[in-house]
Design a protein around this nucleic acid. Structure first.
Ligand SMILES: [Mn+2]
Ligand SMILES: [Mn+2]
Ligand SMILES: [Zn+2]
Ligand SMILES: [Zn+2]
Lengths: 143, 143
DNA sequence: TTGAAAATGCAACTCGGTTGCATTTGAGCC
DNA sequence: GGCTCAAATGCAACCGAGTTGCATTTTCAA
């Protein structure tokens, strides 16, 4: 049993969720990827070790987002990406997405400047802040 | 001929695009809406005055975004929204989207704090900044 | 061991958006 | 006013991400 699997189990049980093989596999695959993958890429990664239907993946992602273990972000292409929520940390972070290869990478925590709710119309409540920088990554820019 | 139609024609011709009835109708409908609609809502609005196929709308939106007349933004639900790009202004603005009714509203120009490319990995080029605040709007919050 | 609840798989479906191709429109020209 | 040809539009079929309903399997507690 790898320690990443142990970590995955710990986070699941800590959230009161059953540590099933697919859920552990999803968390392990996600931890092994250096970026925030789309569902299809994550499914491919999981399937290298575990048989899983795409419906199960989508249901698992819903569950993990609901439990606060994962964060869901909107890609410039309209497809969702998921990344690990830093454990015990609640500072939101933004993402960079390459318009050529589509890879989305996590950025360090945002400056507080964004919390400036001064911009907001009156009477609204903000639950989530999404910041995405779109451009060309080093590799696609012919690095 | 309303002056909003005249404005629409002006912007189209200024961009070197033919001012066809559908294009003018799309720009007029968009200018009349107080927010950044999804394609279906925009199509409904246009159809109150003009017969238009959804494919024509999507092609028109592509064209207007390409010409810099419209901006395209990703909604929290994965569907795109479009809003008028302020003429002659290039400061990016963010959006607020209500998680209950789905309405997306434009916000005033962003503070410069976001341009802090200090957060970025080396070798990347940023072309577009997308900022979206998700929460509950005044009306849905039972105003 | 067994029974019920939860998790998973499979097929069919929805919805936003796209593609190919036939038809119509309209600006430039006579 | 009538041609001409490219651009614009409509229609049908399609695509991919994500969802729903329901049958089957797994898990865990009694
Ligand atoms: Mn992230
Ligand atoms: Mn806007
Ligand atoms: Zn790239
Ligand atoms: Zn609302």
């Amino acid at each position: 049993m790898t320690d990443s699997a142990t970590d995955a189990r710990a986070r699941l049980e800590q959230a009161g969720l059953e540590a099933t093989p697919r859920r552990v596999a999803v968390l392990e695959a996600l931890a092994a990827l250096p970026h925030a993958p789309a569902a299809q890429e994550l499914l491919d990664a999981v399937r290298r070790t575990t048989r899983m239907d795409k419906v199960t993946l989508y249901r698992t992602l819903d569950l993990l987002v609901e439990a606060g273990i994962l964060q869901r972000h909107t890609g410039a292409d309209g497809a969702f990406r998921h990344c690990m929520a830093p454990a015990g940390e609640n500072a939101p972070h933004g993402h960079f997405q390459c318009t050529r290869c589509g890879v989305m990478t996590c950025l360090p925590p945002l400056p507080e400047a964004l919390d400036a709710a001064a911009l907001l119309p009156a009477g609204v409540t903000v639950e989530h802040v999404e910041v995405r920088l779109d451009g060309v990554c080093g590799r696609c820019r012919q690095g």
